[in-house]
């Protein structure tokens, strides 16, 4: 299992891997926003956390469709499916590797982009923390979509369409926890706890559902 984790990590860093593209996409999306809404620093500071969250959400969906499709194309998926190790565990490890290669760099890049958004230190810290807590949930939800769409020839876009509605609760609680940290009266902990709960919930449900979908996708 550790071998699988490191192989996936290596693959995403090697030539053509998705690790760098995700961060780049994140930066580009966030950089485009000020052109659209105008360089009003107060406005940017207010919408900053939301922008960062949406950017991170889109960026982490970017490479997800390849999670199982690449394995299927070269036949590795057959061998992964055949083993007596529970498939749920295999899927979980693949998700963890994907998160470490794509999600973690987004979290690291977010404070820099927070500065561009003229957010204050507290807001940046809160955004980083909520991203750290919420991004794994997106990966786990995405794994289900990726597993469902694995046999489809043009599954990429479909995965995003399938996954985005499911990821909306993550977005809601991530953003509201961030705003709660910045604006005084609202308490930070309740939405943050719900966010953590969502992540844990999907960490269990996601691999199970994805494994079930993969089992039936084989032909």
């Amino acid at each position: 299992m550790i071998a699988l984790f490191f192989r996936d990590l290596k693959l995403s860093v090697r030539a053509g891997g998705g690790a760098m593209i995700g961060v780049l996409f994140f930066m580009t999306v966030v950089a485009v926003i000020p052109f659209g809404v105008g360089p009003d620093l107060n406005l940017l500071a207010r919408i900053g956390p939301a922008i960062l969250w949406i950017g991170a959400l889109l960026a982490s969906l970017l490479g997800l469709d390849r999670l199982f499709q690449a394995e299927r194309e070269d036949g590795s998926l057959d061998l992964l499916l055949m083993q007596e190790t529970p498939l749920v565990l295999t899927v979980f490890v693949k998700c963890a590797a994907h998160w470490a290669a794509t999600g973690l760099p987004l979290v690291v890049a977010s404070p820099f982009l927070g500065l561009f958004m003229n957010m204050n230190e507290l807001a940046i810290g809160a955004t980083m923390l909520t991203l750290l807590a919420g991004a794994p949930a997106i990966t786990f939800i995405g794994a289900v979509g990726a597993a469902v769409a694995v046999a489809l020839p043009r599954g990429g876009l479909l995965v995003s369409i399938l996954v985005l509605p499911l990821a909306i609760p993550v977005l809601i609680f991530g953003v509201s926890a961030t705003y709660a940290a910045v604006e005084d009266p609202a308490p930070f902990l309740p939405p943050f706890m719900i966010l953590l709960a969502i992540t844990l919930f999907f960490a269990v449900i996601g691999p199970v559902a994805a494994a079930a979908a993969l089992k039936h996708s084989a032909d």
Partner: peptide, 14 residues
């Protein structure tokens, strides 16, 4: 961003 894009492009092609 352009520099980073070019690096990514160079890395993406074998």
């Amino acid at each position: 961003l352009m520099y980073l894009g070019l690096i990514a492009l160079n890395r993406a092609m074998e």
